[in-house]
Simulated scan of single mutants.
Amino acid sequence: MTGVEKLRVRATRTRQGNGVEIYSFFLRGADVARIADINRVGRSNEELEGFQRPEIKNHVRSIVEFLDSGPVLFPNAIILAFSSDVVFRAVRGRGVEGCSDISDGGVITIPVRSQGKRAAWIVDGQQRSLALAQAKNDTLVVPVVGFLSADLATHREQFILVNKARPLSARLIDELLPKVGGLLPQDLEERRLPSLLTDELAKDPNSPFYKMLKRKSDPVNAGLITDSALRAAIGQNLKSSMGALSQYRGGGEVDTDAMYRTLFAYWSAVRDAFPDAWGKKSTQSRLTHSAGIRAMGVLMDQIMVRADSTADAEAEVRTSLERLAPHCRWTSGEWDELGLKWNQVQSSPQDIQRLAEHLCRIDRKLARVKP
C-alpha cells in the first residue's frame, strides 16, 4: 500500500461465524464514499453481477435535506465488507477491571483509492452514504460496522439478510438467492430452489425462457414474462405432494438436474403448442401474462403425473398440450365456462385459480377420450 493515501481510525474488533473479523468504528460521513464502492446489480453475458439497487434519487435528496437541516442525530450504522487490504492493529495495554473481553481495541487502516478499486464495498446504507457525500456538513460522524470478506456471495447474503424486513423488492431478493451460499432463514431457504431453477431457465440459450424473463437486474426490462410468475409456478410444483418436481426431493437429497429437465421439457412443449401466443407481450397474450404462467404451472402437475406413468413421458406432455390448444383463448375470444374475454383474466388469486381449474378440467376430459 506504499504511496496510497490511508485512513486510520480507532476501532474495536471481534469475531463471528467461523472466525470472521468484524470491526466497529466511526468515520466522518464524507469519508465513507472515499473508501467504499457500491457494487450495483446487473448482468453481463447472462451472469449476475453485484447486488445493490440503483440509486433512489428522491430518497437521497430527502436525506441530504435532513442532514443539512441543523445539528442532527444520525446514528444509523453503515455496513461495509472489507478486502484483505484493510489492516487492523490491536493496541496492547492493561485491561479495565470488570470489563467484558468480547472485543479488543486498536487502529484500523483503510486505503483510499479511486472508484472501482476501493478496499471496501457498501453492504447496507448506500443511499445514506450517497447523501453524506453530498451534504454540506462534511464533519458529521457516523457509525460504521465492517466485516472482513472479499467474497461476493457473502456480501449478497448479508445484503439480503439486512434488507429482508425492509421495503426491498422481493423479486430482487429472489434473483440474488441462487448466488448466496450461506445459511438463510427458513422462509428464504424455501425460496432459494425456485429461484435457482428460474435462473437456470433464464440463462440456458436452449431454454424456452431464454431472454424472455423480466428481471430486476435487467435495466431495460426487455423480457416478456415476469420472473416472479415463473418462480411462483415452480414453487407450487415443489410444494404439493403431487407436484411435478416434488418426487425429486426427499430424504435430504435434491435432484436439481432432474427438476430442470422436467421444467425444460414441459415449458418447451408449452411454447411449441401455442406458437402464436408465446412470443407476445402480456397485453397481447394471456399465456405470457402472470395469470397464464401460474395457471399453466398448476396444469403441469396434473400432466406430469399422468405422463410419468407412460412409456414416453415427453411425447405424452406434448400430446396433452396439443389437444388442449384449440380450447384455449390466450390472444382472442372468450374462455368457455369462465365467461371472461381473453384479456379480462387478471393476475388475482381468484382468476388464476379459476383459469387453472378450467384448464385442468378440459385436460382430464380430453385425456379420457380414446384416440
Rank of each mutant, 00 (worst) to 15 (best):
L7E: 08
R8W: 03
T12A: 02
I22V: 15
V32Y: 00
A33H: 09
I35Q: 01
I38K: 00
R40G: 06
V41Y: 01
R43F: 08
E46R: 11
L48G: 14
P54G: 02
P54C: 02
E55L: 08
K57H: 11
N58E: 15
V64R: 05
P71Q: 10
V72E: 13
P75W: 03
P75M: 08
N76E: 11
I79P: 00
A81M: 08
S83L: 08
R89C: 00
R89T: 01
V91F: 00
R94D: 05
G95N: 08
G95K: 02
E97L: 01
D101Q: 10
S103L: 04
D104E: 11
G105V: 00
G106F: 00
I110W: 06
V112M: 13
V112F: 02
I122L: 05
Q127A: 09
Q127P: 10
S129F: 06
A133S: 14
T139R: 15
P143T: 13
S149A: 12
L152C: 03
K164I: 11
A165M: 10
A165H: 10
R166E: 06
L168P: 01
S169I: 02
L172Y: 05
I173Y: 04
E175K: 03
L177W: 12
P178W: 13
K179D: 12
V180T: 15
L196A: 09
D204R: 10
P205Y: 11
S207R: 07
M212S: 03
K214A: 03
K216Q: 11
P219M: 08
G223H: 11
T226N: 14
L230A: 13
I234Y: 02
N237E: 09
L238N: 01
L238F: 08
S240H: 14
S241M: 12
G252H: 09
D255G: 09
D255A: 11
T256P: 01
T256M: 04
Y260P: 04
T262P: 04
T262G: 07
A269F: 00
V270E: 13
P275D: 06
P275T: 05
D276F: 14
A277C: 09
K280M: 11
K280C: 05
K281Q: 12
K281Y: 13
S282G: 03
L287A: 08
H289A: 14
I293R: 05
A295R: 07
M296E: 00
M300A: 14
Q302I: 04
V305M: 08
D308W: 15
D312K: 11
D312Y: 04
A315S: 12
R318S: 13
T319V: 11
T319S: 15
S320I: 02
R323A: 12
R323G: 10
H327E: 10
E334L: 11
E334M: 15
L338C: 08
K341N: 09
N343S: 09
N343G: 02
V345W: 01
Q346K: 13
P349I: 07
I352F: 06
H358M: 10
K365W: 07
